[in-house]
Amino acid sequence: MIYITGDTHANFRRFSRKQMPYHLEKGDYMIVCGDFGLLWAKDRTFQYNLKFFEQRTYTTLWVSGNHENYDMIKEYPKELWHGGMARHIVRDKVILLERGQVFEIEGKRFFTFGGAASHDIQGGILDLDDPEFMVKRQRANRSYLPYRVKNISWWEAELPTEEEMKEGKENLEKINYKVDYVITHCVSNRIQDKIEERYYGGGTYGRSYFPDILTGYLEEIEGKLQYQHWFCGHYHMNEEIDMKHTVLYEKIIPLNQYEMKGIFQKQE
Rank of each mutant, 00 (worst) to 15 (best):
R99F: 08
R99L: 08
G100H: 03
Q101L: 10
Q101P: 06
Q101A: 03
V102C: 14
F103D: 10
I105R: 00
K108H: 13
K108D: 10
K108M: 15
R109S: 09
R109N: 02
R109D: 03
R109M: 10
F110A: 13
F111I: 09
F111W: 11
F111D: 08
F111S: 07
F111N: 05
T112P: 13
T112I: 04
F113G: 09
G114T: 09
G115R: 00
G115P: 07
A116W: 08
A116R: 07
A117N: 12
A117V: 09
A117S: 15
A117Y: 09
S118N: 14
H119F: 11
H119N: 13
H119E: 13
D120E: 09
D120I: 04
D120P: 04
D120S: 07
D120L: 09
D120H: 06
D120N: 13
D120M: 06
I121N: 12
I121E: 09
I121A: 11
Q122T: 11
Q122E: 15
Q122K: 15
Q122G: 04
G123Y: 11
G123L: 00
G123R: 12
G124P: 13
G124T: 00
G124Y: 11
I125T: 08
L126F: 09
L126C: 08
D127N: 07
L128K: 11
L128V: 01
L128Y: 00
D129Y: 06
D129G: 14
D129E: 15
D129I: 05
D129M: 13
P131Y: 00
P131F: 01
P131K: 06
E132L: 14
E132I: 02
E132R: 05
F133V: 00
F133R: 05
F133M: 06
M134T: 12
M134G: 01
R137M: 05
R137W: 02
R137H: 03
Q138L: 10
R139L: 15
R139T: 14
A140K: 08
A140M: 12
A140N: 13
A140E: 05
N141A: 07
N141M: 13
R142G: 10
R142T: 12
R142P: 00
S143P: 05
S143D: 15
S143Y: 08
Y144H: 15
Y144V: 12
Y144C: 14
Y144A: 14
L145N: 09
L145F: 05
P146S: 04
P146T: 05
Y147L: 04
Y147G: 07
Y147F: 14
Y147T: 00
Y147W: 01
R148V: 01
R148L: 08
R148F: 01
V149G: 02
K150T: 00
K150W: 04
N151F: 03
I152F: 05
I152S: 12
S153N: 02
S153H: 07
W154V: 11
W154Y: 14
W154Q: 15
W154G: 03
W155A: 06
W155G: 00
W155V: 05
W155Y: 04
E156V: 05
A157D: 15
A157F: 03
A157P: 09
A157M: 07
L159W: 07
P160N: 06
P160C: 09
P160M: 07
T161A: 04
E162I: 13
E162H: 10
E162M: 13
E163R: 12
E164M: 10
M165V: 01
M165Q: 13
M165D: 14
